[in-house]
Amino acid sequence: MLALTMGEPAGIGAEIAAKAWLALRDGGPAFFLIDDADRIGGVPVERIASAGEAAAVFPRALPVLHRPLPFPAVPGQPSVATAGAVLAAIEEAVALAKAGEIGGMVTNPIQKSVLTAAGFPHPGHTEFLGELAGTGVPPVMMLASSELRVVPVTVHEPLARAIARLTPELIVEHARITHAALVRDFGIAAPRLAVAGLNPHAGEAGTLGHEDQAIVAPAVRMLRDLGIDATGPYPPDTLFTAHARPTYDAAICLYHDQALIPIKTLDMAGGVNVTLGLSIVRTSPDHGTALDIAGKGVASPDSLIAALRLASQLADNRRKRA
């Protein structure tokens, strides 16, 4: 059983949750929604009092742990007043996962600007979940699809700052967490990691920048000394081609867009955000709140469905290893 959080109430979370239930009710992974049950439309809804009731309800209705909002959400118009409910849903799902009442959690997209205005101190879900369910290592973002898995070493920060912050140790830390997650959660016995270069042509022997020789290559050597099958640095413009992708299990990328552009180009609908390094399983759709189409009935549930399916698979793998 999985818990799905409400996400931004003014966004598409409730709509895609209902559509995901329609797609999965006849044999897909079962889930329940933590949300205001009164705002879920288009499908049968049944309030539940605990996670344990959800499995019996799921075939006939979308199970909802009813958590009323302070006032009705208006599609496309986020409000700081709902920030507390959004964060409480995440905290409740984490608590249920840590208690073993659910196999994992899936988070609907949040509106970071609204949470920040309400005093939320974290850049996003990943860092908040690290605080709630950390394991002593930094939480790491992975984007995964059927064709590609990518991990950005630096995430939501200006590119100049991201490059200035790169060190061999930072790359190694992210790669080690990725390697461990590929073994434990994805069931890959001997993961292969490809490390992207920073500069065009991976620096071309120093003629196009020194970072690949001074920062990235030493990180690859350190990883190999640790017994991890890591190779690189590879020129970023060829690392994600159809010929290259089958040669590795995950690509370690050095900044946000280097990782997210290829996976969103390849599979925007099927991409899933996975948080590595947590004590629990957490996935999320690889898209935002889509305020511009909220309330119009046109939002696609495909990425949420993929996130639910992957969370179920990861939870099963964890149980088997345990």
Rank of each mutant, 00 (worst) to 15 (best):
G288H: 08
I110F: 05
G297R: 11
E127Y: 14
P168K: 10
V298S: 15
V153S: 07
A202Q: 03
A322S: 11
A89G: 15
L266F: 06
L62C: 02
A190P: 00
H256T: 09
V150E: 03
H122V: 07
L278Y: 06
P121E: 08
G76E: 09
P63F: 03
L87I: 15
P123R: 11
A55S: 11
T116I: 05
A37F: 09
G119H: 13
G270N: 14
P9H: 10
R224F: 04
T126Q: 11
A311S: 08
G13T: 04
E53N: 07
S146H: 14
F128R: 04
P78Q: 10
G130V: 14
E157R: 14
V106W: 03
A49R: 15
L182V: 10
I48R: 00
V220R: 01
G103P: 00
E157G: 09
S303F: 04
L308G: 03
L2R: 02
A217L: 14
V140Y: 12
G52S: 10
V80Y: 05
G270W: 05
P236V: 11
T289L: 00
L254R: 03
V155M: 13
V220N: 02
P301D: 08
R39L: 01
R165I: 00
A30P: 12
N317P: 00
A190E: 14
A55D: 07
A242T: 15
P200V: 06
A190D: 14
D249L: 05
T126R: 02
L170T: 12
V94T: 05
A117W: 11
I163L: 15
I261Y: 12
I171H: 04
R39I: 09
L143V: 15
L115H: 05
D286V: 08
V151D: 03
V281C: 07
T116L: 07
M268N: 10
I280M: 02
P152N: 13
A160P: 00
I263H: 07
G277N: 11
A95I: 02
A99P: 03
T116C: 00
V140I: 15
V94W: 01
I171T: 07
A37T: 12
K320H: 08
A17Q: 01
K320N: 08
A56S: 13
M1I: 14
A205N: 13
R282P: 03
Q258W: 06
A97F: 02
I280Q: 01
H179M: 01
H122L: 05
E211Q: 10
Q111V: 00
P235G: 12
A180K: 14
L208P: 03
L4F: 04
L24E: 06
T207N: 08
T107P: 01
T241E: 09
L69C: 08
H243L: 11
T283D: 06
A290G: 01
M222F: 01
P218A: 11
S50I: 04
A196T: 02
R47S: 06
H174K: 15
V183G: 06
A250Y: 09
A83S: 13
D249V: 10
L65R: 09
I16A: 04
T247W: 04
L182I: 09
R318T: 08
V298A: 09
G297E: 08
G13M: 04
M6L: 15
D212H: 02
E46R: 15
W21Q: 05
I12S: 00
E46S: 13
D229T: 07
N317Q: 15
D185V: 01
G134L: 10
E127D: 15
A20H: 04
A214T: 13
A306N: 10
D212K: 05
